[in-house]
């Protein structure tokens, strides 16, 4: 049974996530040092995983869950690789 969007809840939820993305992006653009930007990237990738899962719910497509899983794996690898690169021992 697909999820029906009615009531205020989906709008409040999407609004909260939008604000989260905007704040993280501000930190990503302003961030005085490189690790600041990496932290912002880490937050953004986690939020993106959640957004993919929620899109799977709103559009009723199960395949998006697999996309979210693969995205989580690759994002984790990317963040760790960037961190190791900053440390100087890739």
């Amino acid at each position: 049974m697909p999820y029906e969007i009615h009531g205020l809840m989906p709008f409040i939820y999407v609004g909260l996530i939008m604000l989260g993305v905007v704040f993280s992006l501000i930190r990503f653009l302003v961030g005085p040092t490189a690790p600041d930007r990496v932290v912002a990237t880490d937050i953004l990738t986690t939020i993106t995983t959640v957004v993919l899962v929620v899109l799977a719910l709103f559009f009723d497509r199960q395949i998006y869950l697999d996309v979210a899983l693969v995205y989580a794996v690759l994002a984790f690898t990317a963040v760790v690789a960037i961190a190791r690169f900053l440390e100087g021992g890739l």
């Binding site: 990496v38 880490d42 199960q62 961190a83």
Partner: peptide, 30 residues
């Protein structure tokens, strides 16, 4: 969808502290 969702949850639970630790140490060392 619960099993797949639990799989994503467990994956996030295992990997996020690792990347946090990596970033933290990289920040200190830089």
């Amino acid at each position: 969808w619960l099993p797949k969702c639990l799989l994503i949850i467990i994956f996030i639970l295992f990997t996020n502290p690792v990347s946090a630790h990596a970033i933290g140490r990289a920040a200190y060392r830089t």
